[in-house]
């Protein structure tokens, strides 16, 4: 059974159609990336999955259960966790408070402490800054915090929206190393990225989104060698 199964997903903002019948699935343990130009509908897809925009048509299933049209906090409680575009850490709150919020739906303090240890072991720099305001962290550290906060929820499916955006090349490499680690740990990932070559390298499968439609999908190596993809996204 797929962790995520999306069929016929359509979203409109007023008269503007942002998604037109998108079909997408992510199997358990799989890493899938969603590529496309600016405005193709990548972020809209993720926002529809996490309940931030209401689909006009179509269905979204998480572990076989229908989640279409649910409000964001209900979807998060079911384990579909999004690391939003631009990180969106709570800048005025401390790093520790941000992590606590990540495990908001978890009512077991022992498990929360265990997850926090694992997150801090993965991102040692966060441990040094637990008491600092998240807004005082560098861009790369904030991205680590945003990912760490999401891992606190123990995600069944983790959505990453442009995790490398606005970061220096060296930091981007670090972020992709983290994504590869998460994949190796068996986390199910759906990745949206501008950096197509790095995204394809780390993914099992890929979808290409154009004007709100999926125009190409398949194993990442195959998509990476498609001439149209090379021309449009890989700078060939």
């Amino acid at each position: 059974m797929s962790a995520l199964e999306v069929s016929g997903l359509s979203v409109a903002y007023g008269p503007t159609e942002a998604l037109r019948g998108v079909d997408l699935r992510v199997a358990e343990g799989e890493t899938v990336c969603l590529l496309g130009a600016n405005g193709a509908g990548k972020t809209t897809t993720l926002r529809a999955l996490s309940g931030q925009v209401r689909p006009r048509a179509g269905s979204i299933r998480l572990d076989g259960a229908e989640i279409t049209g649910m409000r964001p906090h209900r979807i998060a409680a079911l384990g579909l966790i999004q690391v939003p575009e631009g990180r969106q850490v709570f800048a005025a709150l401390t790093v520790a408070e941000n992590l606590t919020l990540g495990a908001w739906t978890l009512r077991d303090p022992t498990e929360a402490a265990r997850r926090r240890e694992r997150v801090l072991a993965r991102f040692p720099r966060l441990r040094e800054r637990l008491g600092q305001a998240a807004g005082a962290l560098s861009g790369g550290e904030q991205q680590m915090l945003a990912i760490g906060r999401a891992l606190m929820a123990g995600p069944k499916l983790l959505l990453l929206d442009e995790p490398s955006m606005g970061l220096a090349p060296r930091i981007v490499e670090e972020i992709f190393a983290v994504i590869a680690e998460l994949k190796a740990d068996g986390v199910t990932l759906l990745l949206v990225e501008q950096n197509a070559s790095a995204a394809l390298e780390v993914s099992d499968r890929a979808y290409v989104l154009e004007h709100g439609r999926i125009t190409l999908s398949g194993p990442a190596w195959k998509v990476a060698s498609d001439p149209a993809v090379v021309a449009a996204y890989l700078g060939g």
């Binding site: 309940g51 931030q52 964001p72 998060a76 939003p84 969106q88 005025a92 709150l93 408070e97 919020l101």
Partner: peptide
């Protein structure tokens, strides 16, 4: 903590559950 999170960024607070 939830109140302060919502004050700063209601969308992100919703994503936290």
């Amino acid at each position: 903590l939830a109140i302060r999170a919502v004050a700063e960024n209601p969308d992100a607070a919703g994503l936290m559950g």
